[in-house]
Every structure is written in structure tokens, then in C-alpha cells.
Design a protein around this nucleic acid. Structure first.
Lengths: 161, 161
DNA sequence: AAATAATAATTGACTAGTCAACAATCAATT
DNA sequence: AATTGATTGTTGACTAGTCAATTATTATTT
């Protein structure tokens, strides 16, 4: 078994080696995700949007004029419903989203993106695409595909979330 | 160029294909990290520790009796200092950590793990090791190393954070 | 020695994610 | 028709991460 010296050990000033590659991989995953998250935030913050808000706006753009209710938005995100409710509170306050009690089933709240929300997304499209590309630019196309495949298999293999 | 059908597209009910593999990879990274984070939380929550608190406790165990000041803890984490301060407030409240103004430089606050903090880490060691291993168990050793290498290169390639 | 700058840590105000409890509405029964 | 039960969404209380501003101490300069 090769005794590889680890980049991550230096990064976090860790003196002891990792117990296992699985531990290193998990930590590596967390740190990499955090760093890329931060990069995206640099694009979004000047516009006053957070990453989660941006996600919801894109989901609502995809839903079109029919809109989506709160639970349905939650299904498309990792987050639980209480968070979504308050997140949309803030989007509504900024007039990027509007809410309306569903006429058919008055328990449901239909959320729709507004024209100014669409405008915001349009302005963010190019810089966000650039951010994606830059964040992964050090990997070749086939390496990126390799990465996606490994990550897919990890998510696939998680027993019962 | 192969038109691969994407697992992630199904997962988030996305109707349109990803704009690019880099976009898919970034999203894949976020979702995978979140899912594994959640798995770890299942081990930690019963003990009343959060993941960040657990990280800080391990850092302080590594520092030994000399302890570490607040800024030094921050350097070993992704987080900024204000977060660390309040995080340690909570660890102190639960008697897992103690703080003391440094005698030499009274601006610094030295944080040390307590015996009950060490006890907690000892109890968590085995289940956390299992969680690491289970989370990555669907990948072979060499695939895990491949993943670590790809992730290292991504972090390495981020310009100036 | 007094004034200024630099450093360490904290507080305030915000966004966010989580769980538990709750309110409102709809569906199904009796 | 009135009660029970399920679904949908919200609120409360907590942990967390972020930025800007502040305090306390130390270092440097005049």
C-alpha cells in the first residue's frame, strides 16, 4: 500500500496521517464543496442573492407560469420545508417571487417567479456559467465526467437518508 | 461527444439537461457533500454535538495541553472567527472546552479540551470511523484515491480565495 | 511618555438549516 | 353532518456562517 503524502493534511495543519482513505475522501469532499460554494457566493452577493435563493429562483423559472408549491420546491432541494418557507419570505420581500393561496386546494401556496426575478436570473447567467467553468477548469472533460460518476455512485450507495 | 443521461437530473426533477459537465460536477459535489454531512450528523446528534463542534474538539485534542487560541482554531477550519467564538461558547457551556486569557498576551484566549471532552471523543471514535467507511464503501480503495486526487486538484486550482 | 497603528477577540444583525409543535384545510368515515 | 385523520404550511427555538463595527490589549512611532 503506497504511503501517499496528503495535500489535505498540510492544508488543515494536521500532524497525524488520516486513519483511512475514506476519512480523507469525506473531508476532502467537504472542503472542496465549501471552497466552490464560496466562489459562487462572490458572484451572487453583489446582486444581493444568496446561493439558496438563487437555486429557488431557478427552480421557479423552470416551473414557469404554473408555479410550484412550497413542498414541491423542497423536493428539488436538499433542504427541509421550514427553511424554504422563510427563504421565500425573503424572496417575496425583494419582489423576486410572489405567493398565492391555490384556488383549488387552499392549503397549498403557489410560488411564482416575477419578471424582476427573471431579469435577475438573466443578469446572473453568464457570470455563473463562467464560475462553473472556472471552478472545474483544472480538470479535463473526461476527468470531470469521472468525478461526476464517482459522486453519483457515492450518493447512490447511501442506504436510507 | 456522448450524450450521457444524468442521474442528478432525475434526482432534482430537472427537465433540461445540464449546460455543461462543469455545472453538473459542481452541483453533484454540493449534493454529495450534503448527503454525507447528514449521515455524520446522525451519529453525532444523539450525543448532542454538531459536526462543527466535533471538528473543533478534535482540533483541540490534537493541540494537547498547550491549547490553541481562537484565531488558530479558525485557521484549521473553513469558518471565520466570529463563528468560532460562538461555537466555543456552546462547547464551554457543555464543559467540553475551557477558555483562559493567555498570561503572556492578554488579547489571546487559549482554548483547551477538558477530560469530559476527551471522553466524548473517545465514545465517538468507533461510530465515526464506521460512518466514514460506510459513506465511501461503494468505491474501491483505488477509486477513493482517484476521488481524493481529483478533489485535491480542484482545490489547488482555485485562484485566490 | 502620549498618540497612533496593529492584533485578538467579541458583539450585533443578517441568512440559513434543523426539529418540534401548531394551525388550517381537505379527505374519509362513521 | 360531524368527527377523525392526513396533508400543507407556518412559527418558535436552536446551531451555524457571514460581514461590519467595537473593545481590549500590545506594538510602534513621534
Amino acid at each position: 500500500m503506497a504511503q501517499r503524502s496528503s495535500r489535505l493534511e498540510d492544508e488543515i495543519h494536521q500532524t497525524r496521517p488520516f486513519r483511512s482513505t475514506s476519512q480523507e475522501a469525506a473531508l476532502s469532499l467537504f472542503r472542496t464543496a465549501d471552497i466552490i460554494r464560496r466562489k459562487f457566493s462572490q458572484v451572487l452577493e453583489p446582486k444581493g442573492v444568496t446561493q439558496q435563493q438563487y437555486n429557488v429562483l431557478r427552480i421557479l423559472r423552470g416551473a414557469g407560469e404554473d408555479g410550484l408549491n412550497t413542498l414541491a420546491i423542497g423536493e428539488r432541494m436538499v433542504e427541509r420545508t421550514p427553511g424554504i418557507t422563510r427563504l421565500i419570505d425573503r424572496l417575496e420581500k425583494k419582489s423576486w417571487v410572489e405567493r398565492q393561496r391555490a384556488p383549488g386546494d387552499r392549503r397549498c401556496v403557489v410560488c411564482r417567479i416575477t419578471p424582476s426575478g427573471l431579469q435577475l436570473l438573466a443578469e446572473l447567467e453568464a457570470p455563473m456559467n463562467d464560475a462553473d467553468d472556472q471552478a472545474l477548469s483544472m480538470l479535463s472533460q473526461s476527468e470531470q465526467e469521472q468525478l461526476v460518476e464517482l459522486l453519483d455512485r457515492i450518493r447512490d450507495g447511501q442506504s436510507d437518508p
